[in-house]
């Protein structure tokens, strides 16, 4: 496939989708309170972005997301490493790990609001709890997937436990950890927004609920767009980080 042939289907698909949406709104006579047209959404987006409170809400949500993600990253990697290095610990925490995977974590949000109040803390906690899981499991998986041949090399060289961790286990686990981080950053965003839905008076989640209550559906769509954009940019940041940390994984030129 030539470059153009590979790149075009994406934009064409989006344009086609927007066109169908516009036509549907125009012909079905659906109320803009239920479904605004793409053009109305775009107008609302420009309007919303021009208002100062939007940026306050955005920075609030972004702050919570990053804090939750940061906590999830540290706790997830450390716990994954602890579990990977002790079979006993793995047996002990396994039931909790499985349970925490099964519990619909969103259902715990009211509990966190109860414990940590309506301020940012409860949202950071929700965000961290939801994002933590893929990081921990991927760290565990990655640390366990050390190539036995590489292990032989370190053993023959009489490497210390510490050297083995930093120079063998961690680099071996890095691709898996980064894949976990990609998932986690999206989940952290969801966690923060869901937390804001249920309590408090700040953040894009709160802003969305308030807008909905005011029946400003076009503005609600605009906020959803903004949230999507934020999540997407965070995801791209992790993808860029992957390219910096794992240059050896980059595809050969011409591939």
């Amino acid at each position: 496939m030539s470059g153009a042939a590979r790149l075009l289907p994406g934009p064409i698909g989006v344009v086609l989708f927007l066109a169908l949406w516009q036509i549907y709104c125009a012909t079905s006579g659906i109320s803009p309170l239920l479904l605004p047209t793409p053009l109305q959404v775009l107008r609302a987006f420009v309007e919303v972005m021009g208002e100062a409170p939007t940026w306050n809400h955005l920075s609030y949500t972004l702050g919570e997301t990053l804090a939750g993600f940061g906590i999830a990253l540290v706790v997830g990697v450390v716990l994954g490493w602890l579990i990977a290095s002790s079979l006993l610990l793995e047996r002990a925490v396994h039931p909790f790990v499985v349970a925490s995977q099964i519990v619909p974590k969103v259902a715990l949000v009211p509990l966190f609001v109860l414990w940590f109040g309506f301020g940012p803390t409860s949202k950071v906690v929700v965000s961290a709890v939801i994002a933590f899981f893929p990081i921990m499991t991927n760290t565990l998986l990655g640390l366990r997937s050390v190539d036995p041949g590489h292990d032989d090399v370190f053993q023959a060289l009489r490497a210390t436990r510490w050297q083995r961790f930093w120079q063998l286990q961690l680099p071996s686990a890095m691709p898996a950890i980064l894949a976990g981080m990609e998932m986690a950053v999206v989940l952290a965003t969801i966690g923060a927004v869901v937390g804001e839905y249920l309590g408090g008076s700040d953040g894009l989640g709160y802003f969305a609920v308030a807008t909905m209550n005011a029946f400003q559906t076009d503005r609600l769509f605009a906020i959803i767009m903004l949230l999507t954009l934020m999540g997407f940019i965070l995801y791209l940041a992790i993808a860029a980080l992957r390219r910096v940390i794992l240059p050896w994984q980059r595809k050969a030129v011409g591939e």
């Binding site: 190539d147 041949g149 590489h150 032989d152 090399v153 370190f154 023959a156 060289l157 009489r158 490497a159 050297q163 120079q167 063998l168 680099p171 890095m174 794992l246 050896w248």
Partner: peptide, 28 residues
């Protein structure tokens, strides 16, 4: 009494360049 071991498979670490792989025993 340090040991040099050449395995049946090369076992180079994929995240290190060739020279860093060769230098690994010295780094340790």
């Amino acid at each position: 009494q340090n040991i040099g071991f050449v395995f049946q498979a090369a076992n180079l670490l994929p995240w290190l360049s060739v020279e860093e792989n060769v230098a690994l025993p010295l780094k340790l």
